[in-house]
Design a protein around this nucleic acid. Structure first.
Lengths: 326, 326
DNA sequence: TTGAAAGCGCTAACAC
DNA sequence: GTGTTAGCGCTTTCAA
């Protein structure tokens, strides 16, 4: 690998001049430009980012800490972040925390001593110390970490309200809310949205808490479906909705004739189920984009006015609801 | 941020000694150990990996180049790789190529000048020059790049054969093979497996090429299903199978009574469909694990005997086939 | 407009 | 066992 000095020598100038050329800093004669360009070309020279980093103390790595990239929400988020990072010359480092605080801390410290310029984090761990005391920028996505940390997410409460409203408008009289885990912020927000929608209405409601997981959701749904007459389900995630569909199927309950279902998330899965699932879609790509843009601004010391962004969710009506109202 | 010299000073030793302590290299007195440890603790010192890298010319970043992390195969692969990387002190950098050779080259060069110690790559781009001329280790996953580059994948041909065999054993007389794109290596292997299974059998076969994509697959399947009588489908991916299921559903064809379907991949989707999809499952996590281990060995200069690994696929029998033979 | 020189934080001979 | 010294490849004053 050629170094800056090799280039300087070949071009007959000093390393400093080459450096200036590379960084477009300071004046430099057209002649010099020409020879340097030629030398770089000839040597196929690529500056070492690591030497540069050592010198400038700036880096271009963004750490992305998510619970588990296998969870369908995160690949799309990662994709969005990577796209904007790429455009701005940043590179993303993938970290799976499994929601474990030790793993989060591990990444935070290792990456910081390595090369991270900032972090984008999805975590439910409440002890925010490790985040608030960090001396590099960080933005929280999907779940709020601390009031001092910028945050981007869907307006889950309103999204859920819309979804349940749709069930109501479609004539449901007895609705089951399959809410997510109490430890997860968005799950609570969605539950609040459910309450918002049903409050004061003369209908029956049931609530069951279950993880964002297929088998567990299927089980929970089956239990509820057997026990009482339910004609509508609002599931806090598409996976749970899929579980409910399975339960209904094996119980011989017809969808959407006897039972209508609304999921949440708007993952691919929703569209690929049969019948296809009506769902409240999050614009995950947009969340990722905004979070990444915000972080990069922070890293580059630019002004960030909106430190808290809520993105509206969108109801996608498909085959698991009848939408009589329409 | 404290530096190694700060630590040395506080401990009353030289930077070299601290360095030796840090890297457990060379002898060092217990006394020294004690003072150094104390100084490190007190100053909350963390060595700068970037300075270290500049000095040693070693880094701990692994570039992972995949077409698109959103594609369900890749998150699990990434997860596996990250898990073994983490255990060995490496960190993974996520790169989405969109199958575009320019993007691949971009990552290859940028990351190399940044800090990559090696690459794990999934690509169908045949011009392997950029890979074969690379001067850092690389391993190919899922799709072969060049005979000189180590490679880990599922034994797709055999996997497909098993899947089709199952359709045959379940009594199918007229089988449609929904094969993947001709440019994609594994798709071809799976098609060969299909041929292997049906060759010489007195049954009817049909073949249609379609991308690993829901809508397109649904369309293709519907067309075939309308045109001729088909009682079995071997789809080259679970997504395509899901599309086929949807087509059958809207055509009023009962699964598995009138039509049996076998998918390929063993993604979550397969288990979450209703009825759940019989599929040939790849052990993606294992592929990732083996690839990462191999790459790390290569990076660390260890002997790698098996440079080409094929992992068997496993048939998971679920509700879209009848398995009369059992 | 350009070059010399110092230094970023660490490692690695080599000498003591 | 430990310290001195000389870099790793780049940037950045400061002079010229």
């Amino acid at each position: 690998m050629a170094t800056i000095r090799d280039v300087a020598q070949k071009a007959g100038v000093s390393a400093a001049t080459v450096s200036r050329y590379l960084n477009k800093k300071g004046y430099i004669s057209d002649d010099a430009k020409r020879v340097i360009a030629a030398a770089i070309e000839e040597l196929n020279y690529r500056p070492s980012m690591i030497a540069r980093s050592l010198s400038t103390k700036q880096t271009t790595f963004i750490g992305l800490i998510v619970p588990d990239i296998v969870n369908p929400f995160f690949p799309e988020l990662a994709r969005a972040i990577e796209d904007v990072a790429l455009a701005s010359g940043y590179t993303i480092v993938l970290c799976n925390s499994d929601e474990k605080i030790e793993k989060e801390i591990h990444y935070l410290t290792t990456l910081q001593q390595k090369y991270a310029a900032g972090f984008i984090v999805v975590t439910s761990n409440a002890e925010a110390d490790h985040y608030t005391t960090l001396d590099i920028p960080i933005v929280a996505v999907d779940r709020r970490i601390h009031s001092s940390i910028p945050f981007v997410a869907t307006d889950n409460r309103e999204g859920a309200r819309i979804g349940v409203e749709h069930l109501l408008a479609s004539g449901c009289q007895s609705i089951l809310c399959m809410r997510g885990p109490a430890e997860v912020g968005p799950a609570n927000d969605r539950f609040l949205g459910f309450i918002d929608a049903v409050e004061g209405k003369v209908i029956e409601t049931h609530v069951v808490e279950c993880p964002f997981q297929f088998e567990a959701s299927e089980l929970a749904a089956r239990e509820q479906l057997e026990r009482q007459s339910i004609d509508g389900i609002f599931a806090s995630s598409d996976v749970s909705a899929a579980g409910a569909m399975k339960a209904a199927y094996s119980l011989g309950i017809k969808i959407p004739d006897q039972l209508q279902i609304v999921g949440y998330d708007g993952t691919m899965l929703a569209g690929q189920l049969t019948p296809s699932l009506t769902t409240v879609a999050q614009d995950v790509y947009k969340i990722g984009t905004l979070a990444a843009r915000m972080l990069i601004k922070l890293i580059e010391g630019q002004e960030v006015t909106e430190r808290e962004i809520q993105i509206p969710a969108e109801l996608i009506i498909r085959e698991t609801t009848r939408s009589e109202a329409q």
